[in-house]
Design a protein around this nucleic acid. Sequence first.
DNA 1: GATGAATGAGACTTCATTCAT
DNA 2: TATGAATGAAGTCTCATTCAT
Lengths: 192, 192, 192, 192
Amino acid sequence: MKKVKDKKQLIIEAAMKIFCRDGFHKATVSEIAAKAGVGKGTIYEYFDSKKQLFIEMMKYYANLYYENLIAAIEKEKTIMDKLKRYILIEEEIMTKHGDLAQIFMREAYNIGLEVHKIMKNNRIKQIQFFADLIQAGIDEGIFRNVNPYTAALAFMGSVHHIQVSKIFIKDSYSEEINIENLHDLLLNGIKK
Amino acid sequence: MKKVKDKKQLIIEAAMKIFCRDGFHKATVSEIAAKAGVGKGTIYEYFDSKKQLFIEMMKYYANLYYENLIAAIEKEKTIMDKLKRYILIEEEIMTKHGDLAQIFMREAYNIGLEVHKIMKNNRIKQIQFFADLIQAGIDEGIFRNVNPYTAALAFMGSVHHIQVSKIFIKDSYSEEINIENLHDLLLNGIKK
Amino acid sequence: MKKVKDKKQLIIEAAMKIFCRDGFHKATVSEIAAKAGVGKGTIYEYFDSKKQLFIEMMKYYANLYYENLIAAIEKEKTIMDKLKRYILIEEEIMTKHGDLAQIFMREAYNIGLEVHKIMKNNRIKQIQFFADLIQAGIDEGIFRNVNPYTAALAFMGSVHHIQVSKIFIKDSYSEEINIENLHDLLLNGIKK
Amino acid sequence: MKKVKDKKQLIIEAAMKIFCRDGFHKATVSEIAAKAGVGKGTIYEYFDSKKQLFIEMMKYYANLYYENLIAAIEKEKTIMDKLKRYILIEEEIMTKHGDLAQIFMREAYNIGLEVHKIMKNNRIKQIQFFADLIQAGIDEGIFRNVNPYTAALAFMGSVHHIQVSKIFIKDSYSEEINIENLHDLLLNGIKK
DNA sequence: GATGAATGAGACTTCATTCAT
DNA sequence: TATGAATGAAGTCTCATTCAT
């Protein structure tokens, strides 16, 4: 019984790597099977189709991400620490799983309605969670009276973008770009 | 000679629409031809392959985008106006051509080295341009002494992320999220 | 325009041979293509699927059969001659296309509703046509007052069965079994 | 030892149902196993392959059929009663096991030489048995001097065809078609 | 130059068969 | 003995690309 779960897990992890590298349509079931170290037919013992494998892979990582996020943030005491932690986790996730985030975004429109729904719900949950944090900060009087959703998206977008750029550009001035700078910038603004 | 260019242009525009909707691998040459109103074989009169068509399509829109950006910004006089114009153009582009930006990002890794290079150069040019603007603002004393690259990426990422979220989430609280709020936030920060 | 029809026809004829020899499920599209002298993909230019090819093949031969049958019978003047002609044609068809009749029967249940309907309609048309002939003979007073449908089926079944047996058994006493004997038997009965 | 036979028997009976419904190639070993209430692997404990299972299933039912036929007919005293009994049994078998007869016919050509031989021998035995009955009737002076093989095949074919038509057409005039009519027709002919 | 019928490589998926338990 | 998870050969179908017209 444990073994069955292990093999399904194995396939999901292999699928994640291949889907991230190639996207849904370029990825082949053959290669996922090879990466998982199982036969091609075995994939179909655990998943109805390539599409279904993609969906279950997405669900798995979406949940994993959200659970970890909540767990880490709830350890922090103050709003400011929670906020910083959120940004740090976003950064960490983007570093480790930026490709996953990318493919979630990109394929969300194309694979089908179910994928789109998962993505949308996941995204809304995140934004809401972050917006709630900011709203709490506003209520406590440590933040200006900004729109919490705009702020949430700005924060998330900045972190995301910086990370993607670092991965993408690699050999350039990406060294000097770091999250410490970003924290300062987002908290204090650019204007003198 | 003029006619030839017209037909090539026609195919590139059709290709853009189909590639944006379906991604590189799901898109079919047949449908691009149909959209362009030409025969399937005609595509191959103007482009060596589907991949080459994608590359040329990308080059075309990357240039178009950059030229328009520069032209619009250079019309503005002050640093602050240039910066605002930049943000507005980014927003406009994301609104009109967000799907194009998405596909550029997503497929950049997969299609081949040439695509990746185009993307990277384009991105670096943009970041550099924006960072230069910010640096000029710092030099003029209107901005704090932030890292210009971090700031550039944060601005670009925020705009991008908000736009994507608006498209993606649609029916939610996206109404209250707007660029005016974002301007204020990025310029003045969140802290009281 | 003529050529297109020729190639579709070519595929239908090849499909008939392979389907007859192997049955629907054992038959492969590859081999049908090879038999027709076209590429595998060409099959799909003319038919949506293997199943659709089977259906269209069936429709084609069902019509061909029925048209020829009617045409030949209408040339005859008297009821008795029409009846004999019918039996002779049935025999001829079973000789030439017995395998086709077999596959029609066998696969009719399995391929899908559409196939079943075609088969059923075709069968009803035939039975009705034959029963009408017999009824006309009864009305003219040359036949006893038998049930025309029973008689039609008995005649058709006898001819069919004899032919199948001849094909099937081949090397046995099939020489002495012939249609002349059958005519006599069916017209005059077995009892002294 | 008894148990082993029981399980083998169980599989044969399940196989018959599935093969009859789907034909050899469409039928799956999985479903046969499920129907028999055994594991998939168990099938291979008793049969070398799917093909071998089909062959053994055929042999079993061919023998069963023939034994029952002989036993029933030998109970009758007169030629005429034996003949009638034969027709009634054929009818009964076609009613109960028409699908089996169908698949025997259809797949006989395709599965392999061994199947073909079984079928052929079985058929020859039946025809011969029936022809012998008719010949005996001729010798006794109750039948005209018809060709006994032709008559045998005509009788068998008529019964078969009527039965198949009843199953196939169902909702039509099949009510008025019955074996009593057929008896009369075959014995007395159609001519006045 | 323009076309689209023809092609076949390669994708997803099924299922008979094996074998470790 | 009985099982069913695992497998990979083989099938259907798609689609980028070619080439005769």
